[in-house]
Design a protein around this nucleic acid. Structure first.
Lengths: 193, 193
DNA sequence: AAGATATGTTACTTTTTGGTAACAACAAAA
DNA sequence: TTTTGTTGTTACCAAAAAGTAACATATCTT
């Protein structure tokens, strides 16, 4: 029995990660975390206060938009820039089980740290939309509307893809379906923006 | 103690309805249903076999697309027809808590009767998309892509609206936000179809 | 070394949830 | 009227979940 709080906390958070990726946030209970991490429950309470606190800690650095930096993308052409954002978002969501579980969880949970997340996301969104407006000459409402349509549908379809293979005859659980969707998105943006 | 199985079943199903509308399908457990309906659990088992069976029964006639009839909509102009479908869908979702809860539940549950639902929805979707293709001359993939983008985002935003007021600076929990969205959808369809 | 504090273990209580056994009352068929 | 089957009540059991009390051991300070 070595005594190392940092290590123990890491073990607990790692266990949360595994549970989330595999079964989602809904499955993160004290017993589950204790069992998965091999740490006794009482330590979880001591170090994180509650499951709420544990999840808040876990959520730090997990969201896509929060860690999004405009500077990471090519600045030249606005159309390319916009396209690239959506592509990156899709890639992230399709490759990260934890992110998909997070987006799913948000739809049914009123966890306090989710509000934080949303507010900070709104700030990022505002910045990006403003950026695109400035360079494209489109109205804010137009850009916001299109962005909303695209990101919301992408979020929905990525979540759904975990349980369901086909939506409107599109193969949403495979690359084939997503290429068709990307084609549609590109087409739509070409026409609308 | 009057003996009336039909009445009892009705009482149970009504209780399910109240629970679903208020807390969602996730909260439909035997104890909850028994308490809400005032019927003893064992009768629920006897009459519906299990919670699964109970939910399957409840789900009959609940989905939007399953009860959708092309004949209900104006047949004349294809553009109007398409617009009208999406408008109707939005109105239904925004006015029915149970429907929203169903769409939310689908994202995380593997309940057997959900597969039925999806398959039958696919059939309806195929019909509608085919119908629009025939009359508009657009390709199947184009129509399917646009429909997917719109319905998926609408579903997502309606579900999200229950816990979250703003998305991309759009007020998704109020008519104001939805009018802007409708405007975007109309614009997009005008350009794309 | 002695004491104080942080760390960890074990075993327990309570609550909730799903599930069942045993019996009581009513209704219709024999 | 007796029998049979359906409807309903009560009380229980078992498992899973959250949460806590009491104790043991390591680490650091003085």
């Amino acid at each position: 029995m070595t005594k190392d709080r940092d290590l123990t906390e890491r073990r607990i958070l790692d266990a949360v990660g595994r549970i989330v990726e595999c079964e989602g946030f809904e499955a993160v209970g004290i017993n589950a975390v204790a069992a998965e991490s091999g740490v006794s429950k009482i330590l979880i309470y001591r170090y994180f206060g509650s499951i709420e606190g544990l999840l808040s800690k876990y959520l730090e650095d997990k969201d896509f938009w929060l860690n999004f930096d405009i500077a990471d993308l090519p600045q030249g052409d606005v159309k390319m820039f916009s396209k690239q954002i959506f592509r990156t978002y899709i890639t992230m969501l399709r490759n990260s089980p934890a992110l998909r579980k997070l987006y799913r969880w948000e739809l049914s949970s009123k966890h306090p740290s989710i509000n934080d997340l949303r507010q900070r996301r709104e700030e990022t969104a505002l910045k990006i939309i403003g950026f695109v407006c400035d360079r494209s000459g489109e109205s804010f409402d137009r850009v916001a509307g299109i962005s909303t349509l695209i990101t919301a549908s992408v979020s929905y379809l990525c979540i759904l893809g975990e349980n369901c293979g086909v939506y409107n005859s599109l193969q949403i659980d495979s690359d084939a379906g997503w290429e068709k969707l990307l084609e549609t998105i590109d087409f739509m943006m070409a026409k609308s923006l």
